[in-house]
Nucleic acid binder design. Sequence first.
DNA 1: GCGTCACTGTTGAACTTTCAAACAGTAAGG
DNA 2: CCTTACTGTTTGAAAGTTCAACAGTGACGC
Lengths: 165, 165
Amino acid sequence: MDEGTRWLTAEERAAWLAFVAATTLLDGALDRQLQREAGMPLAYYQILAMLSEVPARTLRMSELADITQSSQSRISHAVARLERQGWVLRRPCPDDRRSTFAELTPAGLAALAAAAPGHVRSVRENLFDVLSTEQVGQLAAICRAMLGPLTADPDARPVPGACAD
Amino acid sequence: MDEGTRWLTAEERAAWLAFVAATTLLDGALDRQLQREAGMPLAYYQILAMLSEVPARTLRMSELADITQSSQSRISHAVARLERQGWVLRRPCPDDRRSTFAELTPAGLAALAAAAPGHVRSVRENLFDVLSTEQVGQLAAICRAMLGPLTADPDARPVPGACAD
DNA sequence: GCGTCACTGTTGAACTTTCAAACAGTAAGG
DNA sequence: CCTTACTGTTTGAAAGTTCAACAGTGACGC
């Protein structure tokens, strides 16, 4: 059954191992840095960051799930936690009463502002400071190429129908 | 205090957002594919894969932690689970009685062999099939550059001293 | 030998994520 | 209306990860 499998070439294999190691370590490093210096995991930072860049600092739960590439269940649990911490506020949506708005509070914005410099420094140290300008462009092109199949791939969607237009 | 922060340039920011999205989605896609077709999460597949490529299909727990870029605690829990499933066997190390060997069982090898083709296909579809040969080389170079600071960075090490030679 | 310190691995509690199921609201057809 | 299907969100249990604490060894100096 696997006679037809196209295994990886030596170059692909080397690239793959380096990719897995680098992304795993980078993720861990960023998570640890945030946890240590700001007391929040990377996933929560990303939620706060997304909310901060949007009009009225408010998004519907499902939009938040889409934009952070996570499942609705995860967002629901995470926002519940952030709400307990006073960083996010949940409000019903008047137009569609199925929907809920998540709004960044001033305290949440302050926590984000306090965490941001350290996070950016960490991203810089571990990624951009070791790449040439050319490599930054190459990386962006590579990632954009990956996004094609990934955004179409049913495997990549956390929740069926989460990306419905 | 954050006056001195070097924020990301527009190019860096674009690259960063694409990178986060692509790696998050790729990770999710691979995990789902394995979970669905082989009934195991990606993290466990990687443990089995590492064990399968080593003499006697046996590694010390700490070596396994190093090679998979994960913490000792994580490996301990994961191997305990894999052992319950009959895919890995734990044995005491005669030379150093602190150490424990983790050995891939025939059943574990069979499970890995059954899972591998689908996994490789998924890696191909979502990564290598959308990249040119040139881009594969660029990606490898970029990841190798990242590994420099990451392997030296204390943030990136799950457990202090885990990488001691 | 003995004390000290580093190293290996495990454990249990806390936390996060996932999975499946439930729930409430909306939309469409008869 | 009533039914049916679908959408947006929540929930609780199960699974996985992390963290801190612990126990058992080994290595080194005195």
